[in-house]
């Protein structure tokens, strides 16, 4: 499986580490040229390839967004066509400014990204836990300690594929519903920050 990660910060690097451990082929990009992230990728995620964002989008089968939400309009729409895009971003006022300045009030943030990428299939996942929690709590399937990660999407097929990735990376996938329903995973909502079992997380489903 070729997994691309756009964003080489705290979350992107953590997810790259989990994916490498799961045996995936991984490519990572930052906002600039590959030179800028080459050393981080070499030392923190040995085995992953540093690429430009456009190359990551073209090369990978599935792409995780790990950039500040406010930057989503910089994504290469064309190159992401036909791909599954996992949206792990959150609105963070301290980085992105007020929500209403980047996302219409009526939409969940992942819906806004889906609208911007009309020919990609967006699945919201990996967004409701902190990066160190993702690192500390990844467990193989069957472990008693395994925590659950919520998914939301308007595409059933993409959801199934991403559920398998979530499981490979160490978490129990819990499918919550549509991208619109995914709003309950946003900061300040019921699902945000939850590091819990599948049973508990399922209660948030619709």
């Amino acid at each position: 499986m070729k997994l691309g990660i756009i964003g080489a910060g705290k979350l992107g690097i953590t997810l790259a580490q989990l994916a490498l451990k799961a045996g995936y082929e991984v490519a990572v990009s930052g906002s600039g040229d590959t030179q800028k992230i080459a050393l981080s990728v070499k030392v923190l995620t040995p085995g992953a390839i540093a690429m430009t964002t456009k190359d990551v989008a073209q090369w990978a089968e599935v792409i995780i967004l790990a950039i500040p939400l406010g930057k989503f309009r910089q994504l290469p729409v064309e190159s992401l066509k036909g791909k599954i895009v996992i949206d792990a971003t959150n609105h963070w006022p301290e980085v992105d400014g007020p929500r209403e300045e980047i996302i219409p009030e009526t939409l969940s943030s992942s819906e806004a990204i889906q609208q911007f990428l009309p020919e990609s299939r967006v699945v919201k996942a990996f967004s409701h836990m902190g990066y160190h929690e993702l690192r500390d709590w990844a467990r193989p399937a069957g472990s008693d300690e395994r925590k659950a990660l919520a998914l939301a999407s308007d595409s059933n097929q993409a959801t199934t594929n991403v559920a398998a990735i979530v499981s490979d990376l160490g978490f129990e996938p819990v499918i919550l519903g549509s991208l619109s329903h995914g709003r309950i995973l946003e900061p300040g909502q019921q699902g945000f920050g939850l590091v819990t079992s599948a049973t508990k997380l399922k209660e948030l489903g619709n």
């Binding site: 050393l39 981080s40 070499k42 030392v43 923190l44 902190g130 160190h132 929690e133 690192r135 500390d136």
Partner: peptide
């Protein structure tokens, strides 16, 4: 400020390699 401290060991390595480079 949270999580297992040893997860930062690769960052120490990154600092050292960056200084060397």
């Amino acid at each position: 400020i949270g999580g297992a401290p040893d997860r930062f060991a690769p960052y120490v390595e990154l600092y050292r390699q960056a200084a060397e480079d």
